[in-house]
Structures are given as C-alpha cells and as structure tokens.
C-alpha cells in the first residue's frame, strides 16, 4: 500500500508540473488557436531567473522560504515579460497569416530562446539550491511525500482555483471567454482583443515560471534544455485533456503524471513514454478532441 501511495504522490507531483505548463498551452490555443511551442522555454527561463535571483538575494541574508517566494516572484514577472514580448514580436504580426506561419514562428522562437540561454548562461547543468527545508509536520509521511512535492501540488491547486475564478468572474476573464468564442464579435462589442491576448500570454507564462521554479527546487538542477521535454509532455497533457479547456489541461497533466509513475512502478521505466503516448493515442481514437475538449472541425 505504501508503494502504491508513493507512486500515486510521485505521479501527482509530476502531473501538477505538467498541468501548470499545460495551462499556458491551452489558454493560448483557446484564444488564438496557436500552439505556442516556445512555452517550454518560458518554463526554462523562469527556472534560470529564479536561480539567478536566489543567488543574488541570498547575499542579502534572506532565509529559505522568503528566498523562494521572492525569487519565484521575480521569475514570474520576468517570464511574463518574455511571454508578452514573444507574442508581440513573433505572433502578432502573423495574426492574419495562414495558420502554419505562426506555428513555424513559434518553433523558431523556441530554438532561439534555447540557444540564447545556452550562449548567455552555460551549456552545463547548474545546481539549484534546495530553498525549502523539510516541514516538521511532514516528517511522519516523508517517505511517501516530500515537502517540496507537497509545495508543488498545493501551489498547482491554488493556481488552478484562482485561474478558474479569474476567468469565470473577473471582467478580463469574461473578455477572454468572449474572445475565445468569437473574436470578431468580441471586437464589435468593444473588447480590446490585443489586450486580452497579451493578458493570456502573461498569465500562461507566469504559470510556466511557477512550474519551473518549483520543479527546480524539487530536482536541484537545471540547464538550457529542460524546457524541451517538459514542454512536449505538457503539450501532450493539454491535448489529452482537450486543448482549449482549462480543467482539461489540469486533468490531462494529472493523468499523464499518474500513467508515467504507475507504468514505471508496476511495469518498467523503459516503457514510461510508451505508456504515456499510447494512452494519448488511445484517448484520441475515442475522443478526438481530448477528454474535456469541445469537438470542432477546423483546427490544426
């Protein structure tokens, strides 16, 4: 039973990270029907920013949790700025172009950002300090779930709830939903589409940065390439849950995390990816739009 729980919480942690990144994919797709392949790099940039900020702030003598929150905040702001700028540079000029053009632009942006960090920082793996000590109250269950894992799951939960409330009840959230339904109509009704799209990119990037900071704190190492695999897996999670759907992204992330964890635990880690992508194929056969996706006919 302990083994099952360990795998369950391991998968939950991994799935939460996928979910945080998948939210960015799904929000952007929901609004402008673009798969933002540079999203994984935002996650990576968030992790790097947090590492740099944490090193600088630790000189001021701050302790662990304060350091994590401050560094995390800086990473979120910085990554959000990146997301905003990427949209303005790489996607906005192509908004009226064929659907393939912004897609290629996104892949180009992803390659550019990876290499930018490679050149500006380093190609080596860097050690990321453990900023949060083990909580005392977690001691009895620490063999099943570590404090950094609890932190990831809790943060994902809070972020998802806040995001859902924001989209349901705030003015901007309503404007986002309206834009997602029908861009032209929303425009006619006086919604500033450009602003809505920018906000979407900012929120998505911020969430990815949170994921980057939390997983780096958990794993303890980063390099310029971590965004690629995390991005691919999160994209898979978004498609699995139904791209464009926010609960779908979270659900997709968790299902993917659990599938990988249980496949490793009970079968073999050699087949981890086989099970993950096999599940994706299986679900897409029966629900082509993903688990919670609305079916539509004219998407890429």
């Amino acid at each position: 039973m302990d083994y099952f729980l360990e795998l369950f919480f391991g998968g939950l942690t991994r799935g939460s990270i996928y979910a945080l990144i998948a939210l960015g994919y799904t929000m952007v797709y929901g609004i402008i029907e673009l798969i933002n392949f540079a999203h994984g790099e935002i996650y990576m940039i968030g992790a790097f920013t947090a590492l740099i900020a944490a090193s600088a702030l630790s000189l001021l003598g701050l302790n662990g949790p304060a350091l994590l929150i401050l560094a995390g905040l800086i990473a979120v702001i910085y990554s959000a700025a990146y997301g905003y700028t990427i949209e303005k540079i790489a996607y906005k000029p192509l908004r009226k172009a064929q659907r393939l053009s912004p897609l290629i632009s996104a892949i180009g942006m992803s390659i550019f950002l990876q290499n930018y960090v490679l050149l500006a920082q380093t190609s080596d793996f860097l050690s990321f300090p453990t900023l949060v000590d083990e909580f005392a109250f977690m001691e009895p269950v620490s063999h099943i779930m570590r404090s950094s894992e609890l932190l990831i799951v809790a943060t994902t939960l809070v972020c998802t709830v806040l995001l859902t409330l924001f989209i349901k009840f705030s003015r901007t959230g309503k404007a986002m939903r309206a834009t997602a339904q029908d861009k032209t109509m929303a425009m006619l009704l006086g919604i500033n589409i450009n602003r809505v799209i920018s906000v979407t990119f900012i929120i998505g990037s911020g969430l990815a940065a949170i994921g980057g900071v939390l997983i780096s704190n958990h794993i303890g190492q980063i390099n310029f390439y971590i965004g690629f695999i995390a991005g691919i897996k999160a994209f898979t999670a978004a498609v699995l849950g139904g791209i464009g759907s926010i609960p779908g992204a979270v659900l997709g992330g968790l299902i993917l995390g659990w599938t990988e964890s249980f496949a490793t635990g009970y079968v073999s880690s050699d087949y981890e990816d086989v099970f993950a992508f096999g599940l994706l194929v299986f679900i897409l056969i029966f629900r082509p739009a993903g688990i919670l996706g609305r079916s539509s006919t004219d998407k890429v």
Binding site: Y3, G10, G11, H218, F228, S261, F262, T264
Partner: peptide, 11 residues
Amino acid sequence: GAVDYSAVVQK
C-alpha cells in the same frame, strides 16, 4: 531529461 525520477527511486 525526464522531469523527475521519483518512481524509479521508489522502485
């Protein structure tokens, strides 16, 4: 390059 290896560690 996987995000983490907790399942393998448990195993």
